[in-house]
Design a protein around this nucleic acid. Structure first.
Lengths: 329, 329
DNA sequence: ATAATAGTTGAAAACGTTTTTAGATTACAG
DNA sequence: CTGTAATCTAAAAACGTTTTCAACTATTAT
């Protein structure tokens, strides 16, 4: 059994409250006795029972992180950033993998509440799952997705601006016939990017018939691949593709190459999210993304502001997008 | 403040110990009163305080997972598997990212002890860090790396057999001049694979001059790339490469292609670990790996056997390797 | 109807801390 | 020396549970 305060107290012939004070430096003056207590604590290998501490203090230093798929590099990178940001502030991360499963997400939500976490950072499975996190009297931060109800804190990239930037970049690179490949889903991420795409078209006076909006069957490689194949069979070949995400973009690259065009010079392609694959020399996809570090830092900061500074206001943060220039444009 | 047992007890006019029993179904017979208690608990939104439960039961249902880099797909996949395996047994994962930093690893070790986790699954930063986990009176499982001291549980792929299998496969595919690219490091993973390579050479009567052992500068793409470049400048061209890991293998692929040879037909390449990239159609690397699910399941099972079945024996599990056939051989 | 038994219940202790309270000691000024 | 303030210490309460124990209440067998 682990050593407790009482064990140390017995050895040092003091009460265990004195030991507690010695270890937490709650004494005004340092003294020989205090030193002695600290030394025997170390000698006995004392390790404070965080469970007891948290129980009596009625707060934990744990942040729950709910993400859809830790094996996906996009999420694992964010996880790393959240972990780093938490550690920096003295907090730990309780990892929850919802597996794109809303039932699991709910289960984890309850579990985290039972564990009395300081707060939760959530990348929800879908927009419907947002309601799971309302009225929880634990601070919640939605990461990377906006929501209709304004009661939840959000930290997201400015997707409108991001898509605008991406489209503008292609136009400035000389692209005259553009296509946006994505999924038409009732979802802020999607609709913001589409809006951004459209306002860039307008801002640069690109005619409607020179800019299409194509549906992808999935968010994966295949979706981008088949959509692009279809696009390339149409007359009046396009020369710029904005893909909803990097996977779709990589699928598009494959299709473009198969059809005998050269990615970058014949057809420029830009994606979103800066997935790990995109950096591979063989792929080298130009993409736009928020800084994950920023995203994570802000999210953690919001939670801590609630529990430590007694913040009450709901926060909605829009982070500026960042273009990552590589070889597909 | 959250609802407690006492709140429910007050409403139902019973003692709080009765409420506890009702909620945990510790009563032999179901009765109307029990149902009433459970209903008011639900109505009030009762959520048990796990901290208190864990304190009094003197055990948690948390497994600490210490890995070097969650953003690396290799580790994030294992993380996912550990998380799944834990969830299946009713445990949760406390994620710790050591960042290849032994000081951080130590800090996390202490933190997990303070949290009184049920056990730890560790993928150590280096062989030296093994000693951090000795004599902890918490069950420890080293995942994916063997250690000299037999006091720690280990679950690893049989690296000797794995390298043997990989080499044998190349030989049977018709490769006559082989090279192994890896790092010569005092490390079981490395040395076991080298031994496996050598015993396959011996078993199939490959002469020493037809089989080299090349050092890679790093475990990354570049290491494999430069080593292969060097190899290809030698006379009497090789036709089969066994790389210590997939990154080195992918680097080697790049070099092979640059030198004008065709991966697969001219020069076969096989890696280890089945990193996520390896599955990409553009890469499609043949590789050998353990089943991460198995690895994780066994590790979790060992920890649970200690805490729930009072197991005392240290276990050393060797998991069979698995060849993943793709297009580089 | 009564005794024996089985099942249910409430009080209380325990888990390992922090923190409040009140008491004891020290220090210092008058 | 005494009185007061300042500081330190021990005891006890609290955090929210589970669990033991003893007391009680049904239930069954005689």
């Amino acid at each position: 059994m682990p050593i407790t305060l009482k064990d140390i107290a017995k050895v040092c012939n003091v009460s265990y409250s004195t030991v507690s004070r010695a270890i937490n430096n709650k004494n005004i003056r340092p003294s020989a006795k205090m030193d002695e207590i600290r030394e025997t604590a170390k000698a006995l290998g004392y390790s404070p029972n965080v469970l007891a501490v948290q129980l009596v203090k009625r707060r934990t230093k744990i942040i729950g992180l709910i993400i859809p798929d830790i094996a996906n590099p996009h999420y694992s990178e964010i996880t790393k950033c959240v972990e780093d940001a938490a550690l920096e502030r003295g907090y730990q991360v309780f990892l929850c993998n919802s597996d794109w499963n809303i039932a699991k997400e709910k289960r984890y939500r309850d579990l985290l509440i039972e564990h009395r976490v300081a707060g939760m950072v959530v990348m929800p499975v879908s927009d419907e799952s947002h309601i799971l996190f309302r009225n929880l009297d634990i601070p919640i931060v939605l990461l990377g997705s906006r929501t209709k109800e304004r009661s939840l804190n959000t930290v997201v990239m400015d997707n409108h601006q991001a898509a605008f930037l991406a489209t503008e970049y292609l136009i400035k690179k000389g692209c005259t016939k553009l296509a946006y490949i994505g999924r038409r889903i009732e979802n802020y991420t999607s609709s913001d990017r589409i809006r951004g795409y459209k306002s860039a078209l307008q801002a640069y006076g690109i005619a409607d018939q020179a800019a299409s909006l194509i549906n992808s069957d999935s968010f994966q490689l295949e979706g981008g691949y088949t959509a692009t194949k279809k696009l390339l069979r149409q007359p009046n070949r396009l020369n710029g593709i904005i893909a909803f995400n990097d996977f779709i973009a990589i699928g598009a690259m494959q299709a473009v190459e198969e059809e005998g065009y050269i990615v970058g010079s014949d057809i420029a392609i830009i994606g979103f999210d800066n997935v790990l694959y995109s950096a591979l020399p063989k792929i080298s996809l130009t993409t736009v993304t928020p800084s994950n570090e920023e995203l994570a830092k802000k999210a953690v900061a919001i939670i801590i502001s609630y529990v430590e500074e007694n913040e009450k206001e709901v926060q909605h943060l829009l982070l500026p997008p960042k273009l990552i220039f590589r070889s597909t444009c």
